[in-house]
Every structure is written in C-alpha cells, then in structure tokens.
C-alpha cells in the first residue's frame, strides 16, 4: 500500500506523516506537491497538519483550491481513503469532503498536549483494529479545533455512526475539561458518509513509537493497512 502525503505551503506535519508511514510502518510513501495534479498512484492520501497558506481567511480555506486538491477530491469520490489530520481535517471540511467546520478553540488558546480519544465506531477502515470504547492517547496541537455543525448535521453524524472519536477523560468519559477545544459533542474525529474520508484534530502520526510517549496512533494506520490490503 502506497501513501501520498500532500505538502501545501505551510504544511509542517508532512515530514511526521512521512516518518510514520515510511520509517515506523516501513511502507512506501511519497510527497505530493500542492501544485501537482498527479497522485502518483497512491492508495491513501494524507492531508497533514500545519498552517497551509498561513491559515489566511480561515484554516483550510485556500488549500482546497490548490491543483492537487482537485485530484484528492476525485480520489475521495472514487472511494479512495483520505486521512485528514489537524489542518488536513480543516481542509477536508472546507473542501466539502466532510461536513461542519473547525473554529477557534473555545478558550482562544493554542493547545499543545496529549489527549485521550475514545473509539466510537470500530467498523471503519481507520478503526478496524480497535474496539468501541478503546481509549487512545494521541497528541493535539491546534488553535482552531472546535468542531462545529448545526444540530441536524450532528444528529445525522451520530445516527450514522460517523462520529469516530470523542475526547474523554482518564475514566474514558467525555467532559468539558478533557475536551481541548470546546468541540460540539466532544467530537475529535468524523468520517464521510461513504466511510473513506476520516478527519481528526489529534495527530496519530505523532504517536507511532512508545519512545516518544505513545504508540496508539499505530492502531489507525494498522487498521487502514488491514482493510485496504484485504
């Protein structure tokens, strides 16, 4: 399985993502330049974290117009897996690949921490190696992570099992303190209706080795491996 990692001007987790795929998992990975229109035959696209286009206007708003994003959208419409991490989640929402929007953290602070997220749906290509209720420890680093959508959209996401991750405390229960950004319904990550686009604010690519604090991010990549190669 080959991973493509998009590099926008201002991306800063593209190297982390490359490290996660190429070094931690030992799989083929290529960078996809934002001006390119060639996905180079990759199976999975990662939209990495960072501050694409300086977060001008709104986080992710400009990145969606880059040439590579037209190809990513085509890939997604054809059912190809897309993993949007942090800024990548913001871009996926702005591009209409996922519903809702990510707004300024409720406390107006940039948050850099390791949080706990609970798996709410293990029947996705990104969580098949997890069980519902599993709690993963994953770093976050963002200023605009407050997932926001109207009530109808939130109810639909919940009803369709598309809330994949929720912020929880050390007891595995959502609460206002455990939620680092004030996201509605403590949402940390959601999936598209077709189940092939996952967006999440936490950084699984920065949790690939126990040496740096957590290897829980591997579960997401290993799920993807199991499902896509199956």
């Amino acid at each position: 399985m080959k991973f493509g990692i998009v590099t926008f001007p201002g991306s800063n987790c593209d190297y982390d993502s490359y490290h996660a795929v190429a070094d931690s998992l030992g799989l083929p990975a290529v960078y996809l330049w934002h001006k390119s229109t060639d996905l180079q035959g990759v199976d999975v696209v990662i939209l990495p974290g960072g501050f694409s286009y300086g977060d001008y206007l709104r986080a992710g708003a400009i990145a969606r117009f880059s040439p590579i994003m037209q190809e990513v959208a085509t890939h997604a419409r054809a059912g190809g897996p897309v993993l949007g991490i942090c800024n990548g989640f913001q871009i996926a929402c702005e591009a209409g690949l996922l519903p809702g929007a990510l707004l300024r953290n409720a406390n107006l602070q940039f948050v850099s921490d390791t949080v706990r997220i609970r798996v709410e749906n293990a029947d996705t290509m990104f969580t098949s190696r997890c069980e519902v209720g599993d709690v993963l420890r994953i770093p976050v680093a963002h200023g605009d992570g407050r997932f926001t959508a109207d009530d109808n959209t939130l109810d639909r996401l919940e009803g369709e099992g598309r809330v994949v991750f929720r912020y929880v405390n050390e007891h595995g229960v959502p609460d206002a303190v455990a939620n680092p950004n004030g996201s509605m319904r403590d949402i940390a990550g959601i999936i598209s209706s077709e189940g092939n686009v996952l967006g999440l604010m936490p950084h699984p690519e920065r949790a690939m080795e126990d040496l740096i604090g957590s290897a829980d991010g591997r579960r997401i990549f290993e799920s993807l491996l199991a499902r896509v190669s199956a």
């Binding site: 300024r104 953290n105 409720a106 107006l108 407050r146 926001t148």
Partner: peptide, 13 residues
Amino acid sequence: VPRKGILDPQGKA
C-alpha cells in the same frame, strides 16, 4: 460575522 448561535469566544471576551 459568526452566525447567530455559534459560540464566538472572542466576541464574548
């Protein structure tokens, strides 16, 4: 402007 009903923490501060 942020839509009515959307939390605007800057506005609140």
